[in-house]
């Protein structure tokens, strides 16, 4: 029988109490709670559209069981900043035209943020390639994504670290 228990989750700084079955993925939980910015592109760990930060690491939420993250901070792309107070990655993706259909964008921004938090503040093209290698994008050819991440990294560096 699939056990369900009440757990507490910390998502984008908000606390949620939810009844979660043992086999529920973080992707399902997040979307069930209305975090629709977490996208589902494959549910197999192949595309990265579902990426979120668990503490400071980008993970594929489709491969992560919700029970395993109950003591950690979960951050989606919307948790990094707001329209009024955007994260440098938000601004750079907007200004550099890095989102086309935009379906991959939340995952790409999360993967880039994880790279920046791991102190790769001046990423080379190869650093970016590696950090984003788990995130498929079918629209952009990644060129403007690299532009945007480079621009955001500069701002983060000048501001003295990721927010």
């Amino acid at each position: 029988m699939n056990k369900t228990k009440q757990i507490t989750l910390l998502i984008n700084g908000r606390t949620h109490r939810a009844a979660v079955p043992a086999n529920e993925t973080l992707l399902e939980t997040l979307r069930g709670l209305g975090y629709f910015e977490v996208k589902s592109g494959c549910e197999k760990g192949d595309c990265g559209a579902c990426a979120v930060l668990v503490d400071d690491e980008a993970v594929d939420s489709c491969l992560t069981l919700t029970w395993t993250v109950k003591t950690q901070r979960v951050t989606t792309v919307s948790g990094l900043g707001t329209i009024e107070d955007p994260h440098p990655l938000h601004t750079a993706f907007i200004e550099r035209g890095a989102a086309q259909c935009g379906f991959c964008t939340p995952g790409l921004i999360i993967a880039a943020e994880s790279m920046l938090r791991n102190d790769t503040r001046d990423p080379s093209l190869d650093d970016m390639r590696l950090a984003l290698s788990g995130n498929l994008c079918r629209c952009t050819g990644y060129t403007k994504v690299f532009d945007a991440v480079t621009a955001a990294a500069r701002v983060v560096r000048e501001e003295g670290g990721p927010k």
Partner: peptide
Amino acid sequence: PRIDAPGKSHGKT
């Protein structure tokens, strides 16, 4: 910047 860019980049679309 395209008018759809903020929504997509912030995960609001």
